[in-house]
Nucleic acid binder design. Structure first.
Length: 496
RNA sequence: GGGCGCGUAGCUCAAUUGGCAGAGCAAGGGACUCUUAAUCCCUAGGUUCGGGGUUCGAUUCCCCGCGCGCUCACCA
């Protein structure tokens, strides 16, 4: 590939070295944040600055450069803040002036100088001394179209962050969201823990795992698809309120809402049930939105969302009945439900079991309409091997999923703590597995043993953090909220 | 995995019916003491994603491959 520009930049680096200047020095001279300079002098007018001639030193990346012969302007940017720098031939030596001229857009520098205001009243540091901090060998993206190539934006996120304000905004919203989530849980007495990512047996969700191996123990391992079973073991152990924010890995499709590696917050609260967890979600989302955005009201992809109000609550049965006229508790087995679906003329994919058919009905007729924050409750038992059976209906469990803007943001239930029931559920899943359902939950003997020692009644909740950040940042694709999303392997560029 | 679309200079994009591959920005040289996408002159920069085919001639048409996007399926 052609590297005309790169060679020119390498020449500059070489010239600096030959002149005895380290282009990548180990020490940065004294300086203050650009924000501090703006705060201290942003209100001073030109006359006041001229009288005081305040001296400042700032550091940053050179984002723009405009030269007028004996005068030049640079824009220095650091940590999202920027300030203009000037160099005036009349004020400094010819050597220093040339040195500044030889700096390139993309380079890092420290500038000591005197504050003044230009004719356009812009606060500007007039350089008196300049230290090169790091030379760039490749250029920044084009300055006003920015970087729009989607693939490049994800593969070289650093360029995206430099060129596109929105990328930075989303990264900061993500950080503040997680900070606010921690603060919320910490304040309620939840203990943050870390459980294994490498698991000898995966569980806690219905999904295909990534597999790996530990050489020394000659052991097959899985990257976790969920941390649920470990967190509940901790509740058995007396950590009554625990949570973990971490990555789960699911060896499945990639879509607007799915990244194979994603961030999940799971929390478990002893002596609580799924209704308590609904209250927790309402409080948590309201508090996070207020902390991150300053308001509980927001717009996601044109949809108005208000986390200040209580969420709508609807059972899966009522939601499906309202959308289709079919009562899933009247059509109690697969044959009956199939007949109902057929009679209704709905375009719903057939399924191998009653529970899956209910889920298909729900996904296709209800889910896209759930724009307002809504808890959908009481799912088929068969789809929920870790949730407690509903006292009102043997075919349902105490479970809910929070939906916002048609997107499922999590999952929660009253945790199944009856070890014998748990064993039966696992065995049912094992039969489904034997019948070809690759995603059926594997039997975890050690987990059943833990339940046998006693798990108190416990409410559990998982929240898809990436999707929550999508909602809060109005991002349409999960890749926008993951700094380095999963991509196909790149063909390696030839080394230079 | 299926369908549709896209791939041209470092970046953002053009290129008539199939007829000399271009512009802006960035880069190099020059002019310029008030710019904010500065302006002006000059220069350089291309395996048109890769391979094959049709044709006198392919960025353009066809086939295969690669990559990316959208979408469907999958993902409770």
């Amino acid at each position: 590939m052609s590297d005309y520009e790169r060679e020119a930049r390498q020449q500059r680096v070489k010239a600096l070295r030959e002149a005895g200047v380290d282009p990548y020095p180990a020490r940065v001279g004294p300086h203050e944040p650009i924000r501090a300079v703006l705060d201290a002098h942003g209100a001073s007018d030109g006359a006041a600055l001229e009288a005081a001639s305040p001296e400042v030193a700032v550091v940053g990346r050179i984002m723009a450069s405009r030269s007028f012969g004996k005068l030049m302007f640079l824009r220095l940017q650091a940590d999202g803040e920027s300030i203009q720098v000037s160099a005036r031939r009349a004020e400094i030596s010819p050597e220093l002036f040339q040195f500044i001229k030889d700096l390139a857009v993309g380079d890092f520098a420290r500038v000591e100088g005197v504050l003044w205001r230009t004719r356009t009243d812009e606060l500007t540091v007039d350089a008196r001394a300049v230290q090169v901090l790091a030379k760039a060998l490749r250029p920044l993206p084009e300055k006003w179209h920015g970087l729009t190539d989607v693939d490049a934006r994800y593969r070289q996120r650093y360029l995206d962050l430099l060129a596109n304000e929105d990328a930075r905004r989303i990264a900061l919203i993500r950080s503040r969201t997680i900070t606010a989530m921690r603060a919320f849980l910490d304040a309620r007495g939840f203990v943050e823990v870390e459980t294994p990512v490498l698991q000898p047996l995966y569980g806690g969700a219905a999904a295909m795992p990534f597999t790996t191996r530990h050489n020394l123990y000659d052991q097959e391992l899985y990257l976790r698809i969920s941390d649920e079973l470990y967190l509940k073991r901790l509740v058995v152990g007396g950590l009554d309120r625990v949570y973990e924010i971490g990555h789960n890995f699911r060896n499945e499709g990639v879509s607007r809402k799915h990244n194979p590696e994603f961030t999940m917050m799971e929390c478990y609260q002893a002596y609580a049930d799924y209704r308590d967890m609904m209250g927790l979600v309402e409080d948590m989302f309201r508090e996070i939105a207020e902390k991150v955005l300053g308001t509980s009201q927001l717009t996601y992809q044109g949809v108005q969302i208000d986390f200040g109000k209580p969420w709508a609550r609807v059972t899966m049965r009522d939601a499906v009945r309202e959308a289709t006229g079919i009562d899933i508790l009247e059509a109690v087995d697969l044959a009956a439900l199939r007949a109902e679906v057929e009679r209704s003329g709905l375009d719903v994919e057939d399924a191998p079991s009653w529970g899956v058919l209910v889920d298909n009905l729900f996904s296709e007729t209800v889910e896209p309409k759930l724009l307002e924050p809504t808890f959908v409750t009481d799912h088929p038992l068969e789809l929920s091997p870790l949730a407690k059976q509903s006292p009102d209906s043997p075919s349902l469990v105490e479970r809910f999923e929070p939906f916002v803007a048609g997107m499922e943001l999590g999952n929660a239930f009253s945790e199944l703590n009856d070890p014998e029931d748990q064993r039966l559920r696992f065995e049912a899943a094992r039969r489904a597995r034997a019948a070809g359902d690759e995603e059926a939950h594997p039997l975890d003997e050690d987990y059943v043993r833990a339940l046998e020692h006693g798990l108190p009644p416990t409410g559990g909740l998982g929240i898809g953090v990436d999707r929550l950040v999508m909602i809060l940042s109005d991002a349409s694709h999960i890749r926008e909220v993951v700094l380095f999303p999963h991509l196909r392997a790149e063909r390696r560029e030839e080394p230079h």
